[in-house]
Write a protein that binds this DNA or RNA. Structure first.
Lengths: 207, 207
DNA sequence: ATGATTGGATAGTTGTACTCTCCAATATTA
DNA sequence: TAATATTGGAGAGTACAACTATCCAATCAT
């Protein structure tokens, strides 16, 4: 399959496929001559994945490249691979304030209240700090009670996901990294729809 | 308070404050002369809100303006105001396919399985469709079982939030719109951290 | 053999979010 | 009150991201 067939298959302009090649989001095809290369199903799948990540998941090309690199060449340590993957996903966290003492006070308090084990280096801690600070700044601080409720729901989800994680390391990395990126938008959409459902049932409005 | 004091208070360059004024994200101050206007606490609060929305929440200036307009002038109908607000929040949904018959097949199936009331016009339906399609395209389709588990967690959260919604309409709009925008990043961070917690407990790794 | 296509490089376009420069009118300070 | 600084407002300029278009010599397809 040559580049125009690949582009057609994926529903993208050829120029865009070339761009993804340049940017390292798409692995090069096998060169058959100085001006020809051939692509296969794996390239089609990769393009679909790229579009999923840059589209609904909302990643920038840089972020998508970082995620794909982790899936392509995971370290042997699942834990640190996941940590790095989460760091590449939006939203960006709060910068850790130059004085190293207690850089994430809100997040620390929240996680202690939840009784959760956590690694302060883990990017999600900074993300939580940023999100809590944003809510504070906007005058919509999150009560400890609400945090507990959200934490409980998050723990339920995590337990479900962890039970289904593949045992083979490579597959586990892919499951975890892509699962984080791809399932989050689903969860958010479901939450918004659940709000609507609850509102309709409660307020007795017929849509 | 003049513009430089306002900017200092909010920790922003004056040029940026002027930009937000031009873009209608910040309400104008009260003019005291041809080249002077005065600003107060409400402007400081608004700037903090704008930064929260464009930062951790990840809204574009356009999206933030749309959200703020809804908070400033909610319609008398809470239901449709919330619907419009959700439509302005990322991620963008799937385009509804020109042939009107069953534009959101995956989302419809999912919501029917969950037994949820929903309005097909509600933007979150298109968002769910897009997210499910992205997962499919990326080769990580979501099983009905997982969807049920996520849906249950979302319903728990929605029930909690709805119970605490203010009764006064204006406050209810603000609570719902800002709550959706500001609490989602918190939930995502908590989910990522819950994954880490569960992984550490399960795999017995010490951070 | 001859017109179309390819891979690869380079340049151009569009959109977003600022940031800078001016300017005349006003404040502030000496 | 004179000199200096600041202001609001408008417009232009900048930087970056994500494409998109143009070239070109080397193949390919007919």
């Amino acid at each position: 399959m040559r580049i125009s067939a690949l582009a057609a298959e994926a529903g993208l302009p050829v120029a865009t496929v070339k761009y993804y090649l340049r940017e390292g989001l798409l692995q090069p095809g096998t060169a058959t001559s100085a001006t020809q290369a051939s692509y296969d199903e794996s390239h089609v799948r990769r393009l679909r994945l790229v579009r999923a990540l840059t589209g609904p998941v909302g990643l920038s090309v840089q972020q998508a490249r970082a995620v794909l690199q982790l899936v392509d060449e995971p370290g042997d340590d699942l834990y640190s691979t996941l940590g790095r993957a989460v760091g590449t996903l939006p939203p960006d966290g709060a910068r850790p304030a130059d004085d190293a003492a207690d850089p994430y006070p809100r997040a620390r308090a929240a996680l202690e209240a939840l009784g959760q084990v956590y690694d302060p280096e883990f990017a999600a801690v900074a993300q939580l700090e940023g999100a809590l600070a944003a809510a504070d700044d906007a005058g919509m601080s999150i009560t400890p009670e609400r945090l507990a409720a959200y934490g409980r729901a998050a723990a339920d989800l995590a337990a479900y996901d962890l039970e289904r994680m593949p045992t083979e390391p490579r597959a586990a990395v892919e499951y975890t990294v892509l699962g984080t990126a791809l399932y989050e938008p689903v969860l958010l959409a479901l939450r918004r729809l659940a709000h609507q459902d609850a509102a309709v049932r409660r307020l007795g409005r017929d849509a």
